[in-house]
Nucleic acid binder design. Structure first.
Length: 128
DNA sequence: CACGTGACAACTC
DNA sequence: AGAGTTGCCACGT
């Protein structure tokens, strides 16, 4: 599945999110930077729109503070925490994950090129 | 810490 | 075809 300019925005976002392995997490801003041309908020919207039973691991995208973002559906954030716990991702000290332990380093450069994403390194500053 | 600001795709009538 | 509705952000001051 490539992601050229003709690919719908949400699909381009989902394609990147599907690369995040179990046990790792990424921030909305990180995903947005990798996809390119989308804002972190758009990534949040896309995650909220993931259909039930989809293969998109939406739970692996959290906010820049390392916390599960609050949302209209309270239960949703609890489900997200539980699913992450099942994958070995835990929220310690005031509800935030330890980025140094669970941060997804991002896709390989080759993958980006092979799938039509610009291998811009601007997102590395998200890797604080 | 509390704001203000930037910036929207997909869906449903 | 077009308007209206609906959503899980990040960063600067």
């Amino acid at each position: 599945m490539t992601a050229d300019a003709a690919t719908p925005t949400y699909e381009r976002i989902y394609t990147v999110v599907r690369q995040i392995p179990a046990g790792k997490v990424a921030s909305y801003g990180q995903v947005a930077a990798i996809v390119g041309g989308v804002t972190p908020r758009m990534v949040g919207y896309a995650m909220a729109a993931v259909p039930e039973g989809s293969d998109v691991p939406w739970q692996r995208v959290i906010n820049s503070q390392g916390k599960v973002s609050p949302r209209a559906d309270h239960l949703g954030s609890e489900v997200q925490r539980m699913r992450l716990a099942d994958e070995g991702v835990y929220f310690v000290r005031n509800g935030a994950v330890d980025w140094s332990q669970v941060r997804w380093p991002g896709p390989e450069i080759d993958w980006l090129i092979a799938h039509g994403y610009a291998p811009l390194m601007s997102w590395t500053d998200e890797l604080r």
